[in-house]
Amino acid sequence: MGPWEKIVGANVRRLRTERGLTQEQLAFEAGIAMRYIGMIERAETSATVGMLGKLAAVLGVEPGALLSATESPA
């Protein structure tokens, strides 16, 4: 996969862990399969725009934050 998948995967993992969520919890709240969360975090698949929206909503960020190559302030 390319650099965008790696950026999204790193951001999802970082935000998920900052919020104290497991992959299972994030998947349940977003209404998607836990396996898919792992694949996104490992940059093994590309998340759709709809998926980015669901993940962002659960993580409490704007969807664009998942595409940001820079760390957001804590």
Rank of each mutant, 00 (worst) to 15 (best):
A65C: 09
R13K: 15
S72R: 15
S72M: 12
A69F: 08
I40Q: 05
A27G: 08
A57D: 13
R13G: 01
T45I: 02
T45M: 05
A43M: 08
A47Q: 06
R16A: 06
G53S: 06
E71Y: 09
I7E: 12
E24K: 15
I7H: 04
E41R: 09
G38W: 01
V58Q: 04
W4F: 05
A27E: 02
R19S: 09
W4P: 10
E18N: 08
L21H: 11
G31L: 04
G9C: 01
T17H: 08
I37M: 07
L52R: 14
E5Q: 13
P63N: 09
G60P: 08
A10E: 11
E62H: 14
A57L: 09
A56D: 10
L52C: 13
E24Q: 12
Y36F: 13
L59K: 09
N11E: 08
T70D: 15
A33H: 11
M51I: 11
G60S: 08
V49E: 10
E18P: 00
L52M: 14
E41D: 02
G20P: 11
G50F: 09
A47W: 06
G38N: 11
E29P: 04
E62V: 10
M51H: 09
T48E: 10
A69T: 14
L67G: 05
T45A: 09
L59V: 03
R35E: 11
V49F: 08
T22F: 05
E29I: 05
M51K: 09
P63L: 02
E18C: 04
G2P: 14
V58P: 10
E18Q: 14
Q23I: 02
G60I: 06
E18I: 00
R16N: 07
Q25E: 13
V58T: 06
E62Y: 09
L59A: 07
V12W: 07
A57K: 15
E5T: 09
P3M: 00
Y36H: 15
R16Y: 02
L55G: 04
I40V: 15
L59T: 05
S46L: 00
V12R: 03
I32S: 07
T17P: 00
I7P: 03
I40N: 03
M34V: 11
E5M: 02
G60C: 04
P73A: 14
P3R: 04
S72W: 10
V58S: 07
M34P: 01
T48W: 06
L52F: 09
L52N: 12
R42P: 05
V49D: 10
A47H: 11
L66N: 12
S68A: 13
M39Y: 12
T70Q: 15
L67F: 12
S46E: 15
A47P: 03
G31C: 03
F28E: 15
A56L: 08
G38D: 03
T45W: 01
G9Y: 02
